[in-house]
Design a protein around this nucleic acid. Structure first.
Lengths: 172, 172
DNA sequence: CATGTGTGCTTCGAGTTCGAAGCATCTGCG
DNA sequence: CGCAGATGCTTCGAACTCGAAGCACACATG
């Protein structure tokens, strides 16, 4: 078994390298996000979460709040707040869906697209400088594959108690 | 360099795979942190940042606020707030340094160590289930190495303007 | 077409976060 | 000594975050 594990005081500790990986992962991402946040705030006056919302809306016609929430790791009430901020800033519009009065359709405006265009180069520059530049391209590819698997694995994780809004099974 | 890059509208976009890696990375870590947060809150009544602070203090005699801040990606005022919370909960103590009246020495208490002991097994279990279980051990090792490099690379990044509290270079 | 249950979103209150400004101490230097 | 600038930390105000509770509409069933 490769899983040689220490057993201290009843706690089965993973090997040091595993802990190392976890800590390096979270710390590096924290640092990265911090820099990204600065850049977006400085160049476009938006937060990272707002940027992600705009990016999610950028390619499509419009999305409901729920669809938006599925694409962004975020609480629903927080999303409501941010959507309101973005609307106030004129970067998105919100209107009730004609098909389902409960649903809110969110769409990006021209001004929103303009903002994306304004901050995207800097955003890319920051990630290039901090992430792509730090490691060889081959490693980056492997990293991407690995993290995609982790992401999918966690997404499939059954929630601890209540079901977390799965995709709404095609009606009927 | 394999870096064939698109050039759209003046913006040099990185290759799709690079963007993929970045998105997968941040999303996976967000999801992971969310689960970790839940577990720590449920089993020990502490937040992830509080847990990290306790872990940083766990091995050592005591640390100043600045030393603590260097180990945790966090604002200084936020650290003051969390240290106050932890002190209120009896998990750490704070007292002015005798050598430098400005500095605050923070130390973990027995109750703090007890709390760490209480939440650590669950914490490890969560990371095992969500991270270690998702990928082969060899990939995890590579991931750790890669992210350690990224972390170090970013830490060396010169700040955009003012110097960001480097290690206090033995006076000079 | 009533009435119960599910769903989509917002509101609410409490707690947390950050940067800027403030306070106290320390250090170098004439 | 005296004092200017640096350093370590906290306070402050405003913004953001989350989960729980609430509201309104949708859909099924009799």
């Amino acid at each position: 078994m490769t899983g040689a594990e220490l057993d201290l005081g009843g706690v089965r500790l993973p090997e040091p390298r595993q802990l190392e990986a976890y800590f390096a992962l979270t710390e590096a991402v924290s640092l990265l996000q911090h820099h990204v946040e600065q850049q977006l705030r400085a160049e476009g006056g938006i937060s990272n979460i707002q940027f992600q919302i705009l990016m999610a809306l950028n390619g499509v016609e419009r999305l409901t709040m729920t669809e938006l929430a599925d694409g962004v790791v975020y609480s629903r009430s927080g999303l409501t707040y941010q959507a309101a901020q973005l609307e106030k800033a004129g970067l998105v519009t919100r209107r009730p869906s004609p098909e389902d009065e409960r649903a809110t359709l969110v769409a990006i405006t021209d001004r929103g697209r303009e903002t994306v265009g304004k901050v995207l180069p800097g955003h890319i520059e920051v990630t290039r400088r901090l992430l792509y530049e730090a490691i060889p391209a081959a490693d980056l590819d492997r990293l991407g594959d690995t993290m995609a698997r982790v992401r999918d694995h966690i997404r499939e994780e059954p929630p601890r108690s209540a079901a977390p809004r799965r995709k709404p099974a095609p009606k009927r």
